[in-house]
Write a protein that binds this DNA or RNA. Structure first.
Length: 487
RNA sequence: GAUCCUAUCGACUAAUGGUUAGGUCACCAGCCUUUCACGCUGGCAAUAGGGGUUCGAAUCCCCUUAGGAUCACCA
């Protein structure tokens, strides 16, 4: 049987990192098994509709490198792929269940339902629709029901869950799960506005779209018995289920907005590479061997299996993501890196001089940062004269005789004709030897004068990238304006 | 409260009845050195607790504890 899986988000605004991982696992499973990956938009709740959310979802799914074979943006033989466009279908199937006696009409108002739950709460029993005492097809009788229907009184359709027996299903990650039927609620299938609930829509669509495996978050585990019951009621074969462990906050609760960024776009904005982000997300809850950490999308596809997905939730801690990002930073080409960072720089009006020059700077600092977005802060001196100087570093390295030493060295530096790394390095080393100086007695003061900072790439590499007159200006300026005040 | 799920270093995880319980990130130390990094070497650090089953249990079973998810005319 062909593997067909789907990612079925609801368009409520943005792509959640947990959603991205669910989509990724679906994608990896599909590609690993030469199956089909389907995108379906679950927008049956009109009150939560957000303009542009679907486009946004697709944008970041595409950013991550997850591709689809069918979906609202590309079509397919099982469309439409947006549930609101399948409106009539659900009604038809809902009615079919009523005819089969597997579902029924109910006319309770939300106030009446609230009261019911209140009563149950007080009595200490689990809140659950009581079809023996509420206002529905059974308590009202056939005639009264028809009456209300013909008067267009608002109604919902509920699933008729048997009072006896148990519901069993096999989860590919958790094994067999058993729930007593009497613990399952008479779920609303069709709302009074005629739209289906998630439960009806997802079962109908998964069946009609030929979905072979439902891979979704663990939050759906408790409602899976309802879905199993629905498949049985329709007389359809249920797909295989795999419920993924949740992504967690630091305090182990379900990953939420309140405790940090949860939108994929936030991490895009923070300068993470998609390769690093996908790699990181993939390893949160799944691991092929644990003897390696870096996987390309292709390698993820080759090694992925649902059997190796963990049962327990994983804390979304970006410490390791930062390291992964640094790994990708070191392997990408300078051209690629420049193209990546230029839009970020333009966005903050940072003058990077030229792409060619930018590439040289990146080459110098890429092993010293985890994320390219740190570049303007890490090495502003490569693009403009320093505006401030690290005082601690000055205190530490600007000694009694430093002024004297540097002034003499400065004179010689002016005479250098080949302004390149090798010349600068050899010259300085020789100068130190001849004057009985340690290299650091020159290098450290020079660094602070030229960069203003205590940290950075090799000093001679840094100097050679800058223009000779620029470097001389910086030293002169420091000697004249800053060093004097140190006395 | 009810139902369901889960439980290995601080974090991500490996070990599917036999290992000194392994790796990666983070952290700490040393080496390298031109600062900071990188790199290299080493270190810290875990089977929630209690019962079984077994020659042997992180692994299988039960109980306890803890955490989480869910209990909507939301998905």
């Amino acid at each position: 049987m062909e593997v067909r899986v789907r990612f079925a988000p609801s368009p409520t605004g943005y792509l959640h990192v947990g959603g991205l991982r669910t989509a990724l696992y679906n994608y990896l499973f599909a590609r690993h098994n030469n199956g089909k990956m389907i995108l379906r938009i679950e927008d049956t709740d009109r009150t939560r509709f957000v303009e542009g959310a679907t486009e946004n979802l697709i944008k970041y799914l595409e950013w991550s490198g997850i591709s689809f074979d069918e979906g609202p943006h590309i079509g397919g033989n099982y469309g439409p792929y947006i549930q609101s466009e399948r409106f009539d279908l659900y009604k038809k199937y809902g009615m079919q269940l009523i005819e089969k006696g597997q579902a029924y009409y109910a006319f309770d108002t939300s106030e009446e339902l609230d009261l019911m739950r209140e009563r149950q709460q007080k009595a200490g029993v689990a809140p659950k629709y009581d079809r023996t005492s509420m206002k529905n097809q059974f308590t009202l009788g056939e005639d009264k029901t028809k009456d209300l229907l013909s008067q267009n009184v608002p109604f919902v359709v509920r699933l008729k869950v048997p009072f006896e027996g148990e519901i069993k299903f096999k989860d590919m990650i958790r094994g067999e799960v058993t729930v007593r039927s009497r613990d399952v609620d008479d779920q609303i299938l069709l709302k009074s506005d005629g739209f289906p609930t998630y439960h009806l829509a997802n079962v109908v669509d998964d069946h009609l779209m030929g979905i072979s495996h439902v891979i979704r978050g663990e939050e759906w585990l408790p409602s899976t018995p309802k879905h199993i019951l629905l498949y049985q009621s329709f007389g359809w074969e249920a797909p295989d289920f795999a419920h993924l462990p949740l992504l967690l906050n630091k305090d182990k609760s379900k990953l939420s907005k309140r405790q940090g960024d949860v939108a994929v776009e936030d991490y895009v904005g923070k300068g993470y590479f998609k390769e690093a982000f996908v790699n990181f997300i993939a390893l949160l809850g799944w691991n092929p061997t644990s003897d390696r950490e870096i996987f390309s999308m292709q390698e993820l596809i080759e090694t992925f299996s649902l059997e190796k997905v963990n049962k327990s939730g994983a804390i979304f801690d970006i410490t390791k993501l930062n390291w992964m990002n640094s790994q990708y930073l070191r392997t990408k080409s300078l051209n690629e890196l420049a193209d990546f960072i230029i839009p970020f720089l333009q966005n903050i009006n940072f003058n990077f001089i030229s792409k060619d020059y930018l590439m040289k700077v990146i080459d110098l600092i890429k092993e010293r940062i985890d994320n390219l977005i740190e570049l303007p802060e890490f090495a502003p001196y490569m693009f403009a004269k320093p505006k401030e100087y690290d005082q601690d570093f000055i205190k530490k390295h600007w000694k009694e005789n430093t002024q004297n030493t540097i002034e003499k060295y400065f004179v010689e530096l002016k005479n250098i004709t080949n302004w390149d790394y090798q010349t600068l390095h050899d010259f300085t080393q020789k100068y130190c030897e001849e004057n009985n100086l340690k290299l650091r007695e020159i290098v450290h003061p020079l660094r602070i004068m030229i960069t203003g900072k205590s940290v950075g790439a090799g000093l001679f590499e840094t100097m050679s990238l800058l223009q000779q007159n620029d470097v001389l200006d910086r030293i002169f300026y420091f000697l004249e304006n800053i060093a004097l005040k140190l006395r």
